[in-house]
Amino acid sequence: MNEFHGEIRKMMIILSKATLDNVYAAFVLANGARMEGIEAEMFFTFFGLEAIHKGKLEHLHIATVGNPAMHIPTLLGGLPGMETLATNMMKKEMERIDMPDVHEFLDILTASGVKLWACKLAMDMFHYKKEDLYEGVDDVITVGDFYKKGEGLGTHMLFI
């Protein structure tokens, strides 16, 4: 811990999931880093790409099945409309605590200097094109490129 006395200089946050709670966690961590004067870059891979996909980012849900924190029986969680209901409830609460929606949050992140990178492999897998993505996305890059951007003392990586 001798480097900068253990001070965090840069957060490299990898988002691999598209459930709303995971997306918000990643966004809050990236924005929180910038608010503290820490650099932040995000790498969107696999389902995490949905958080920057123009046609999908407004329609992200929380998971009602396989999510013990929902405290509802798995069978009920699978009923039609349950995810929408739970998502709407969560969105209402988020507005109350001044949490922006996904698109506005992306605007805040880019204005704050957070770099947004899309994973090339996952883009190919889902047949997405750069123009399908939110306009603030910096580029489509490989995992090797992403590691390269994390070079330097005081960089931390986080996988969500």
Binding site: D98, E104, S112
Partner: peptide, 17 residues
């Protein structure tokens, strides 16, 4: 909050940074 700053009509987030 950063969000409120952005909606302040005084300064936007980019200029604030």
């Amino acid at each position: 909050s950063i969000r409120k700053i952005g909606k302040s009509n005084v300064v936007d987030i980019k200029e604030f940074y």
